[in-house]
């Protein structure tokens, strides 16, 4: 146990250092943009992971929480001049509260009924925002330019401060998940995922724990919404509530391997550069080639590696170990 903890802490520190070193090689604005997207989707993938990978509630409507968070902070900032940092906190709390209210009926739904319900939620909330004049309806809101700096959460000269902010958010999320995985909450989430009836028979209040998972996941996702709003300095329903955000989030996590901490980070680190690079190389977005490759990735992953990259690594590790043992056994026989 002790050794495990030290090793994992060392891994987290090493991870943070690697994260801090990336900007040395990322000197162009485009490569910095890729880094920002990687950390953003890593956090989003982890948030999805809490709800789907651990607690077993597969959501394909995370954009609902994402967009809501983006709008909360933007409305606060545009209409009331609230600092984006405070806005981000409000966004997290508001989406978590919204998710709890929505989650109460939704937690009754199981498996695919839940998944389809989240799609429906994502579509409904988008329509509401497209027709809500007060928040700019389909045109959305522009966040007024301010002097750059951490106080205004706007950086114009370089994208790196965004990256560091995102990295901090990612490390916080990872630390939370590390603690969660080793606590009662993590075990209860997994128990609900594996078999709700058994879990409640063992004293797990499934509704309460499902709501916790949904609220935490939504809260983090909402804060990411604020992050993207500050990054692009505008919010618009078609952009913030886009269904492809929901799909990308699920994909990043599944590709890396859901139900464990490192999976979504790996998934994001590999998929986001691919998607951004194909988009840049093969013309502007709208041709669909980037998403086409995405789709192919999902299919291939489901067919050949349903446990994700982490599952693949584990299998390779196991076979290497088995081989080594076989070799060891052979050596014993020879001597």
């Amino acid at each position: 146990m002790q050794r495990d903890d030290i090793r994992n802490l060392a891994m987290l520190v090493a991870f943070a250092i690697i994260g801090l070193l990336f900007p040395i090689v990322a000197t162009t604005r485009f490569s910095q943009h890729i880094l920002v997207m990687v950390v953003l989707y890593a956090v989003l993938g982890e948030a999805w992971n809490i709800m789907a990978g651990y607690a077993g509630m597969v959501s394909i409507g995370q954009a609902a929480f994402f967009g809501l968070g983006a709008y909360v902070s933007s409305v606060l900032s545009v209409k009331y001049g609230v600092s984006p940092w405070l806005g981000m906190l409000c966004a997290g709390l508001a989406t978590a509260a919204f998710a709890t209210v929505i989650g109460l009926p939704f937690s009754r739904l199981r498996g695919r009924y839940f998944a389809i319900g989240t799609i429906a939620l994502g579509q409904m909330i988008k329509v509401v925002f497209e027709n809500w004049q007060w928040v700019g309806a389909a045109t959305g809101l522009m966040i007024p330019l301010a002097n750059q700096g951490f106080a205004s959460f706007q950086f114009h000269a370089s994208k790196l401060p965004y990256y560091y902010t995102g990295l901090a958010l990612l490390l916080l999320t990872l630390a939370f998940m590390y603690i969660m995985e080793r606590s009662k909450m993590g075990y209860y989430f997994k128990a609900i995922r594996e078999n709700e009836d058994v879990a409640s028979g063992l004293g797990v209040n499934r509704t309460a724990y499902k709501l916790i998972a949904i609220a935490v996941s939504a809260g983090i996702t909402g804060m990411c919404g604020t992050f993207l709003a500050q990054y692009s300095l505008y919010v618009e329903p078609e952009y913030m509530f886009n269904h492809s955000i929901s799909v990308t989030i699920a994909l990043v996590a599944v590709f890396g391997g859901s139900g464990n901490i490192i999976g979504p980070v790996l998934g994001s680190a590999i998929l986001m550069p691919i998607s951004e690079l194909t988009r840049a190389w093969l013309g502007s977005s709208g041709t669909g080639i980037d998403l086409m490759i995405y789709g192919a990735f999902i299919v291939l992953m489901c067919v050949y590696e349903p446990e994700g990259l982490v599952g693949m690594a584990r299998r390779i590790g196991a076979s290497i170990k088995a081989q080594r043992e076989r070799r060891g056994a052979a050596r014993c026989q020879n001597s």
Partner: peptide, 21 residues
């Protein structure tokens, strides 16, 4: 379960964007 749920998602994204491309 996840693979069974998401595989057709992948197909959908693939075909729609293939058509667009």
């Amino acid at each position: 379960f996840l693979a069974r749920l998401l595989v057709t998602f992948g197909l959908s994204i693939f075909f729609i964007n293939m058509a667009q491309f």
